[in-house]
Structures are given as structure tokens and as C-alpha cells.
């Protein structure tokens, strides 16, 4: 399946009104050859998960600059789990206090990128840790 393309979603849950960071990362992902679905500001976890399903992405990158990241990020992971989805990687980025990182990883956020992280390191991490879904439609041709 040489044509398989990595599809990722960049989403901004919560109330803060800045998406410069999210846009920068979206561009970096595009330049790395990924298809990036960007959903804009003020998304609820429900909206993010529903969009991720419709878009069949391999990864959701959550960006948060406000304080509610623990609740919001956890909700995204929970919703995916409730729907029986275990093959979408969830990552987070933004202004996130050091002490929260272990907590977030425990609830199922695979990696957290804080403002100091270089773009190329994030891209590299995604390339190494997120693979496009390999299995195609299950279909038996008689």
C-alpha cells in the first residue's frame, strides 16, 4: 500500500482564542507530507472525536493554551474508547505544566509537546510513532 498517506487532525478544544500555534504545527505536518485536517477553535471533545471518525485520521493532535487541558484531553480519550476506537493516537501540545504531563500520559495521551519542542522533533516523533492504517477494507473476493 505505497499510496497510504498519514492523515492527522489538529484540533483546539476549549475556550482560548489563539490558534497560531495550531496553525504552525498544521503547516509543519503538511510540509512533512501529511494530510492535515484542521477543525478550528473552540471545539468540544465530542465534536473533535466525531470529526476524527468521519475524517478517518490516524492521529489527533490537541492544542491547548488554557487550563482545562486535563479534563478536555481526557474526555477525548474516553470518547474514543467508548466508541471502541483504539487505533487513533492522541497527542497534546501547548502550555502544559510539567507536573501534568505524567497525568496526561496515564490517561492515554501518547505524547505531550511543550512550547520549547522543536517542530522537526514533533514531526519526527509522529513519523516514528504514528503509522497510516494498513489494513484495507476486509473483503474477500471469491
Amino acid at each position: 500500500m505505497k499510496d497510504r498517506k498519514l492523515r492527522v487532525m489538529v484540533a483546539k478544544p476549549g475556550l482560548d482564542g489563539h490558534d497560531r500555534g495550531a496553525r504552525v504545527i498544521a503547516r509543519a505536518f503538511r510540509d512533512a507530507g501529511f494530510e492535515v485536517v484542521y477543525t478550528g477553535l473552540h471545539q468540544t471533545p465530542e465534536e473533535i472525536v466525531q470529526a476524527a471518525i468521519q475524517e478517518d485520521v490516524d492521529m489527533i493532535g490537541l492544542s491547548s493554551l488554557a487550563g482545562a487541558h486535563i479534563y478536555l484531553f481526557r474526555r477525548v480519550v474516553e470518547l474514543l474508547r467508548e466508541k471502541g476506537i483504539d487505533d487513533i493516537v492522541v497527542c497534546g501540545g501547548g502550555i502544559i505544566p510539567e507536573e501534568d504531563i505524567p497525568k496526561l500520559k496515564k490517561i492515554g495521551i501518547r505524547e505531550i509537546f511543550t512550547p520549547g519542542t522543536k517542530l522537526e522533533d514533533i514531526v519526527q516523533w509522529v513519523k516514528e510513532n504514528v503509522k497510516p492504517r494498513i489494513e484495507g477494507v476486509k473483503c474477500k473476493v471469491k
Partner: peptide
């Protein structure tokens, strides 16, 4: 459009339609 340089793309149309996502 897909970027002819990287083969990647930013798909941003959804931003305007997200109110229908649920």
C-alpha cells in the same frame, strides 16, 4: 489542494462546518 512540494495538504474547509459535526 495537495502541496506539490511535500505531497501533504491542509484541509481547512471543515472549520466552517464544524457546527454540523454532531
Amino acid at each position: 489542494p495537495t502541496s506539490p512540494f511535500s505531497g501533504g495538504a491542509i484541509l481547512g474547509d471543515r472549520i466552517r462546518m464544524q457546527r454540523h459535526s454532531l
